[in-house]
Design a protein around this nucleic acid. Sequence first.
DNA 1: TCTGGGGTCCTAGGACCC
DNA 2: TCTGGGGTCCTAGGACCC
Length: 427
Amino acid sequence: LGCSHASAARGVMSIFALVDCNNFYASCERVFNPRLEGKPIVVLSNNDGCVIARSNEAKKLGIPMGAPFFQWEKVCKQHKVNVFSSNYELYGDMSSRVMALLTEAWPDIEIYSIDEAFLLLDGCPENCVEFSLALRQKIKSCTGLPVSIGIAKTKTLAKIANFIAKNQTESGVFHLNDSNISILKTIPVEKIWGVGRRLAARLNDLKIFTAEELKNSDTKKLRKQFSVVMEKMIYELRGVSCLGLESVQPRKQIISSRSFGKLITSLSELEEAISHYAAIASEKLRSQHSLASGLVVFLQTNFFRKQDVQYQNSVCVPFPAATADTAYIIHIAKKCLQRLYRKGFRYHKTGIMLLNLIPDTVKQNDWLLPQSSARDTLMKTVDSINQEYGRNTVFYCAEGINPTWKIKSVFRSPRYTTRWNEILKVR
DNA sequence: TCTGGGGTCCTAGGACCC
DNA sequence: TCTGGGGTCCTAGGACCC
């Protein structure tokens, strides 16, 4: 199962706490505008498209997460809901403040998302409930943000404990332990961390409806029917920790994309957009000290508009050498876009994905001309790729490339990031 | 008319190699 | 008529998360 983190390996019980900010984006807006206390708030996605955060008051109005805003605009007006466009800089800043307080209070921490962190409370000298109550108080007084804290033996249970803390307690802290574990009866499977719509439906088909029922299911049988992920989940529900704290790793891919506020038909506007996204992506790349080995650019029409002719396509290009050079990345991204562009469509979204990121310690001059007889084959391969995809975008080829592979495989393969020095410059 | 953006992990099955 | 076997690598696609 790979339950290899220290406590599990030693067979020692762990205590996890999940700290989660309540209605994070909505709460951030409220911090800077206290007159919103007790009033309904929603925060909208890019272009004010969807509802991505709701205060409790807004939830009570029945506004669902992810709902298209235009469908709820009337209801919002009617109930004087305070509507905000998203302000990610603000939320990011508030997040860092919360995480700094948490780290200061307890260094054994995994920052799981913008508004959540796991603490591994093993060895906490205090009673962990009291510790959590004090922590919650401190975060509230220092940042103004309300948080809930769930405590349990595993991460999965801590998630459930957090759900209970948020919805069923006054204190905002809940310790799920042996004495109250029967509460799992009241938790439907779709509330479990890792169970989405599809898995929930399949579990229900097997007459498994609650967390308790899943916990009592046969691990071997369900592993066969689902996967190892499901098996771990069951053990986690039983209090056997299979998921430890994870340290911060650099991203394995970086995406920058946006849907446009209006439909776009001209190539020049698209180029402008992709240049911008490419710049954002390469900045992110440099900030984590990585180089990208290649990129994907994609382009699509609005698939909600059934009346429009649809088109979506993407193109992958490996770089001759891993790079974080903004100008170069923009240049390639534009070339890709030109290749994707077809006249006559109304475009809705474009974006760029940087792939197979490697640490920027790799020497970029480690390029060799092939010495072997494979050189001719390589040249032919590259020529055929260039012919197919356009001479300006693909100049290089890696050792071992099979000419029958699609170009995507050339750099999506982790092999070419771990064996980077073997990549050969052929032109 | 208007419908977000950014991530990760797992598996089946094909391709390939010896 | 008979047509190896074991292993690795790789991809597409599915599923999930916030």
